[in-house]
Amino acid sequence: MPDFSMELHMGGLVAGVDEAGRGPLAGPVVAAAVILDPEHIPLGLDDSKRLSKTKRQRLFDHIHEQAVAVAITQASVEEIDRLNILQASLLAMRRAVEALDPAPHACLVDGNQHPGTKCPTRCVIKGDQLSASIAAASILAKVKRDQIMADLARKHPAYGWEQNAGYGVPKHLEALKLVGATAYHRKSFAPVRKILLQTHKANN
């Protein structure tokens, strides 16, 4: 289980940073930054992928209630297509750190890519399984992104986004072929680009 040892080693106000939504074919990429209170760390923090939806939602609420500071930001589909998904993810993470109040003295970031944050930053591979702060950020980003995709699913019900969060599962791919792409699809992603090309050829 993740703990608070890396945060204590860095000292001061340390933010955990993570993102959700690099792989889906639709929707924004969402990032979160969290400064936990070492005296009030929510019980049960873990990599969001290892938690049930119910536990994620409960922890989402507890993190907001108990953390020193929380910020959740995103990079849009347009930014993903313009910059590429990696750069858009790093942009969303920078935005999350910059939105924290108070500002952190240092950051722990999930993965091996430095997001360009101005404070001292340590990248931690599988950080959401090691650092309590990164785990908290992973939960916030995942829950928020799932909420965004569920909201978008009400406008575009054919794709099943409330279930698949925009990932390229069979139902989503089949709907792409039958209905076409929406403004929320990532046109730079190969499956979407292929559908758009086929539609263009069919109409010309």
Rank of each mutant, 00 (worst) to 15 (best):
H172K: 07
V169E: 09
A183C: 04
V124S: 05
S138L: 12
K177W: 02
K142S: 10
R154I: 12
G180C: 09
P120S: 09
P102Y: 03
T117R: 02
P104K: 08
Y167P: 10
L176V: 10
A181E: 12
C119A: 13
M149F: 10
K126L: 03
L152A: 03
L140I: 09
N164G: 06
L108R: 09
Y159V: 03
A103C: 09
L108M: 11
H156Q: 11
K118R: 14
K144S: 14
A153P: 03
A181T: 14
C123F: 06
R154P: 01
V179E: 15
C123W: 11
A106T: 02
L130F: 06
A99N: 11
A132L: 09
Q147K: 08
L152Q: 04
V179A: 05
S138A: 13
N112W: 05
K144L: 03
L100F: 10
G168E: 02
L108E: 01
S131G: 12
Q113G: 02
S138G: 12
R145W: 08
A132Q: 15
D151P: 00
L140K: 12
L130T: 13
K126H: 15
P115S: 03
V109H: 04
A141Q: 06
E98V: 08
T117I: 13
A132F: 05
K126M: 07
L100N: 10
A150P: 01
Y167H: 07
Y184P: 01
Y184W: 14
S131E: 01
H105Y: 00
A181F: 08
R154N: 12
E162M: 00
G127W: 07
A150Y: 07
R186A: 02
A137W: 04
K142A: 04
P102V: 03
A132N: 14
S133C: 13
M149Y: 07
D151R: 15
T117Q: 00
A103S: 15
A132V: 02
V179W: 13
G116A: 04
T182D: 05
A158N: 09
H156P: 01
Q163R: 15
K177N: 13
L100D: 08
A150K: 15
D110L: 07
Q163G: 01
A141F: 02
V109I: 14
A153F: 01
A175F: 11
A141R: 09
T117W: 02
